[in-house]
Amino acid sequence: MRHSNPTPDEIRALIDAELHREGPLLPILHAIQHAYDHVPEMALPLIAEALNLTRAEVHGVMSFYHDFRKAPAGRHVVKICRAEACQSMGANALSQAVLDKLGLDWGGTTADGSVTVEPVYCLGLCACAPAAMVDGKLIGRADAARLAAELEGAA
């Protein structure tokens, strides 16, 4: 498993790799999240220093976007589409069933840290709705049993 407590030097290396780009802040945040499954608080002053921004500005950007997490997610991440096309095919009932079964609200992680359930607004699978994603694997015409089976297979 990826370790989630990077050192300042590890973060600096990720920042430096993106500095050649125009507008590097989002690529930096993505690189850190990709490496550590979240953007740790300690990274913000390092980013601010490298880009000559204030910490508040970096925090403002990070918190604007749904993708960036302050803490790592569960070992498995289930994303269920909540958008209209999926709703027309029963996405509301599907997400309710999954959340109820795990005892979670949107964005929550099970107590044992195994599963996080997040909403997503459109995976572009609108012609085979409802759609979901389990650990990056796309599922069309999803139902609760299929999602449970994917999670079991991934565990």
């Binding site: 507008g23 802040l25 989002l26 950007v61 976007y65 993708d67 960036f68």
Partner: peptide, 24 residues
């Protein structure tokens, strides 16, 4: 350039801010 889950960034000026590394 990869977005970061903000629907409003489909609006062109918000997209440009995001591209520049700002809030969308």
């Amino acid at each position: 350039r990869t977005g970061a889950g903000a629907y409003v960034c489909g609006e062109e000026t918000s997209l440009l801010n995001s591209l520049e590394g700002k809030r969308g």
